[in-house]
Design a protein around this nucleic acid. Structure first.
Length: 744
DNA sequence: CGTAAAACTTTTTTT
DNA sequence: AAGTTTTACG
């Protein structure tokens, strides 16, 4: 037999060779499931003669999809390129873009993120006279999202509510919310899945064409699928039943978001002739780490019994340290990473700090800055959720889909056009009355009652948008974006402000421009058309974790949830305190299943570690401006004692010189711009260079824009503003300190 | 209409 | 502690 399959163990090989009919692979942490999936794809193509075009592999994150894509390309050669590897959400968007008109939507629908959803709900609450102080939008959205996860329509939800007034009202809000989405020609994240299912159920011909297309289907992280996703997959697979799912019930950590563990536990019931294969040999961690994980997860009652084993060496014990407070905890962790780096035992990217909540990242960030350690925070505020980025994106969205009222309203007075809340209210009322979109109301503003002196301003805005729309026909996405930036004076305004913050915003905008450019390049390389809708869609589905790059040397800071699917030689689990992890919410609720989900999360955290695992906790911690005193996490106590190295129980409190706050403040100001990018100490000094090593007329290279000739250099207060004519992208103005131009 | 200050809420996890 | 939203005033 072909040698590539000989590197697999017997169980893995069995999974690879079982190509036809339903297959459930119960794959423990680090048991090589991605290897199995990629080898299976290669086997299907090379040995079974399956057309790669007929294979679909679904993951949860783009990062996982990219990784699988790479590995498939490597192992299956050029043919692998036609295998469809993608996330649930991207797959559904691609299908909907082609067929959603069958459901009465426009094919160039926009995708709403959490912010957009919240604004929409708020507006609906106002219309329905619901006091958002008593009923929180978040709660309503959560209820709606849950209904969608379960494929419930507003009517069904209302019926199920029975006498429950709260639930009933949520169902009514849900109904209005869906109507508003449709009016705006928009879908939220959940809709992407639900509407695809609806499409399949309503249009047999469409379903059939995809069933024929995807004869072999593979689903990764199956334990995290919800009912809607399961329905989507099973509809697709129902014709050929060549469905292979891979999951681990012990790593199910998204039940709060609707993941239905019944999908994995009941797989054999839905597909009676399903084959089940267990992968229990772990290739990732040391024995001590694995035993610790086993010790913790054994406390869960609701699980399929299994025990991971490994041939790896015993390794170091699990380190546990307790500190006085969060600052000292962070200082220790960062110091320990610095030590490993200094001693040459670890690169920065071999280390990860994991915590329960995003808020905990701040302390580690501060300490990394002080220690000059490059780091990257995953999660928190998404790049695309930043104000300046959303503003500009809403211009693009408006050009793309003027039915999107939210986008239009957002930019109507950005930059300031002297159009205030009163005018917006009047126009909205008129739009509601005439049953037209907000933008259409703007276009006929002269008919809006008591519009008064605002009319000319509104007309100016409409003219502006119309001109952009006509330009959009001929312009590329990046050209259109730059046109918007130019004509609105958005960047000029920020530059005039000239604060650290405004500079950071300008830099973010530059980054957005490079994203459009690289989008166009990618499309060109793949021989696909770069469209405005395409670009907006791509960034709507980007998750923060997608940008983690193993080839760059930085410490990764992230939540335990984000860490799922990743591995690091040295892992630090911070904030191991009852009340933090497990969270006080689930301790308080007394619901055993919630505690078990937290425990699975802990299991996921432990099993991320390959060589060494360090757990830390603080006796005292500031949470939301209040000091909390917490006991050591019960999860730590569930690890067999002999596996743990305790050090001193409580670390000695060092008499401290109060830290000098001054350098830190300016750092933290700046951090805003580096939040999504990795912080690199050497790039950090954004003070004006004494002189530049290039002058007017010199040829320079820019990391994104390529080669160009310096046209002009203007001395500004803190920096030089350089004008460069690039060969590829034309004339650009930029700050020298940010642009990092190289003379060539 | 726009700005500045005051009041108020928030967090558990995310595609 | 930090961010958002409301309120007061020019």
């Amino acid at each position: 037999m072909n040698t590539i399959y000989d590197t697999l163990n017997d169980r893995q090989k069995e999974a690879v060779l079982h190509t036809d009919g339903p297959l459930l692979i119960l794959a423990g942490a680090g048991s090589g499931k991605t290897r199995v999936l990629t080898h299976r794809i290669a086997y299907l193509i090379a040995e079974k003669g399956v057309n790669p075009w007929n294979i679909l592999a679904i993951t949860f994150t783009n990062k996982a999809a990219h990784e699988m894509r790479e590995r498939v390309d490597k192992i299956a050669g050029s043919e692998g390129g036609s295998v469809w590897v993608s996330t649930f959400h991207s797959t559904c968007v691609r299908i909907l873009r082609r067929h959603i008109d069958r459901l009465g939507y426009d094919n160039n629908f926009t995708i709403y993120d959490a912010d957009d959803q919240k604004i929409l709900i708020k507006e609906i609450c106002r219309k329905m006279n619901i006091d958002t102080k008593k009923v929180k939008e978040r709660a309503l959205l959560a209820q709606i999202s849950h209904a969608k996860d379960e494929l419930l329509t507003p009517d069904e939800m209302e019926m199920n509510a029975g006498a429950d007034f709260n639930q009933k009202r949520a169902a009514q809000v849900y109904r209005e919310y869906q109507a508003a989405l449709r009016r705006n020609n928009a879908l939220d994240f959940d809709d992407l899945i639900c509407k695809t299912v609806e499409l399949f159920q309503n249009c047999g011909d469409v379903l059939q064409s995809y069933q024929e297309r995807f004869r072999y289907i593979m689903v990764d992280e199956y334990q995290d699928t919800n009912t809607a996703q399961f329905k989507f997959v099973s509809l697709l697979a129902s014709r050929y039943e060549n469905l292979c799912v891979v999951g681990d019930d012990d790593q199910s950590i998204y039940r709060f978001r609707g993941a239905n563990i019944g999908n994995i536990l009941g797989f054999e019931r839905v597909f009676p002739d399903a084959k089940v294969i267990r992968l229990e040999q772990n290739y990732r961690s040391t024995q001590n780490i694995l035993n610790a994980a086993n010790g913790v997860i054994a406390n869960n009652i609701e699980r399929k019994e299994k025990t991971l084993w490994t041939e790896n060496p015993e390794g170091e014990k699990i380190h546990f340290r307790q500190f006085m407070n969060g600052y000292e905890e962070a200082e220790f962790v960062v110091g320990d990473i610095a030590r490993r780096h200094r001693e040459g035992t670890a690169e920065y990217h071999n280390c990860a700090v994991l915590y329960r909540t995003n808020a905990q990242s701040r302390l580690f960030e501060e300490k990394c800055l002080l220690a000059n350690i490059p780091y990257k925070i995953v999660g928190g505020v998404n790049f695309y959720a930043r104000k300046e980025i959303k503003d500009l994106l809403c211009y693009l969205k408006t050009v793309d889909n003027a039915a999107d009222d939210l986008a239009v309203r957002r930019i109507l007075n950005v930059p300031k056009r002297g159009i205030g809340a009163t005018t917006v209210g009047r126009i909205q009322d008129y739009a509601d009355m005439m049953n037209i979109s907000f933008y259409d109301a703007l276009r006929v503003a002269e008919e809006v009652p008591s519009i008064g002196r605002s009319l000319s301003k509104v007309d100016g805005f409409v003219t502006f948008i119309q001109s952009l729309k006509s330009k959009a026909q001929a312009y590329s996405v990046s050209e259109l974006l730059e046109e918007i930036i130019d004509l609105t004076g958005y960047v000029d305004e920020l530059k005039a402000e000239d604060t650290e913050e405004s500079r950071a915003r300008v830099e973010n905008i530059d980054e957005l421009i490079s994203k459009t450019v690289s989008y166009e390049e990618t499309m060109k390389a793949e021989n696909r058309e770069a469209t405005l809708s395409g670009f907006l869609e791509e960034i709507a589905l980007i998750a923060d974790i997608d940008s983690v790059d193993e080839n760059q040397d930085y410490v990764v800071l992230m939540t335990l949830h984000s860490a799922k699917g990743l591995e690091f030689p040295y892992v630090y689990l911070a904030g191991m305190e009852d009340g933090m992890f497990p969270s006080s919410m689930c301790i308080f609720s007394g619901d055993q299943s919630e505690l078990e989900e937290e425990r699975r999360l802990c299991y996921v955290g432990i099993t991320r570690a390959m060589k060494e695992l360090t757990m830390t906790s603080a006796q005292q911690r500031m949470v939301r401006g209040e000091t909390q005193y917490n006991r050591v996490s019960r999860f730590v106590r569930e690890i067999p004692r002999e596996l743990v190295d305790l050090g001193h129980t409580v670390q000695e409190h060092k008499p401290k010189i109060p830290e000098t706050k001054s350098p830190l403040n300016s750092y933290l100001q700046m951090k805003k711009s580096f939040h999504t990018k990795a912080f690199q100490p050497q790039n950090f000094k954004v003070t004006k260079a004494d002189s530049l090593d290039y002058g007017v007329g010199d040829t320079v290279r820019h990391i994104k824009f390529g080669v160009g000739i310096v046209k002009d250099i203007v001395e500004g207060g803190r920096d030089y503003e350089v004008t460069v004519d690039f060969d590829k992208v034309g004339v650009k103005k930029m700050f020298a300190a940010f642009a990092k131009l190289k003379k060539i």
